[in-house]
């Protein structure tokens, strides 16, 4: 039984779903559905198994994405804030530095450096070795550095 801060777990799943779906409202729906499915799965003991929850959230996001057409990824430029013409984004913003990156790299950076997930958790989520995760993280950081270097700061 681990000590888990439920609100932080909610935030982590929510951010992940936001990035996948680019829609804050849908992301909250997915987050709450993730919690409910996790609790009903019988796997929930005293703590919350984050890797299992990410797996549930990933499947739910995939279901949602299949049901709607994905909009283009919007970046923030000159601190202008959200694009008011694209209601789907609802304030989700990524710097232009991330725009040119592959989805998988972007997602990895979020999970590792924003959500603070361990390499072990990421390896379990992506079904690969820890070594592979380290390699992918390095590649993602390089891609980000290249993109960031080209961005107007």
């Amino acid at each position: 039984m681990g000590s888990t801060d439920l609100e932080q777990v909610y935030d982590r799943i929510y951010r992940y779903a936001c990035l996948r779906l680019r829609d804050a409202h849908l992301a909250e729906d997915v987050t709450q559905e993730t919690f409910l499915r996790y609790l009903n799965s019988g796997k929930a003991g005293g703590g919350y198994e984050i890797r299992y929850m990410y797996a549930i959230a990933r499947n739910l996001c995939a279901d949602v994405s299949r049901r709607r057409r994905r909009g283009p990824l919007q970046g923030v430029s000159d601190g202008a804030g959200e694009d008011a013409t694209d209601a789907a984004l609802e304030g989700i913003a990524v710097r232009a530095a991330l725009e040119g990156m592959a989805d998988a790299d972007r997602e990895l950076l979020l999970l590792r450096y924003v959500n603070g997930e361990s390499v072990g958790t990421l390896a379990a989520l992506y079904g690969c070795s820890r070594f592979a995760i380290y390699r992918r993280l390095r590649r993602a950081r390089e891609a980000f550095r290249r993109s960031w270097g080209g961005e107007d700061v």
Partner: peptide
Amino acid sequence: LDRPTARR
């Protein structure tokens, strides 16, 4: 409440 939540 679990400890991290309680502290926060």
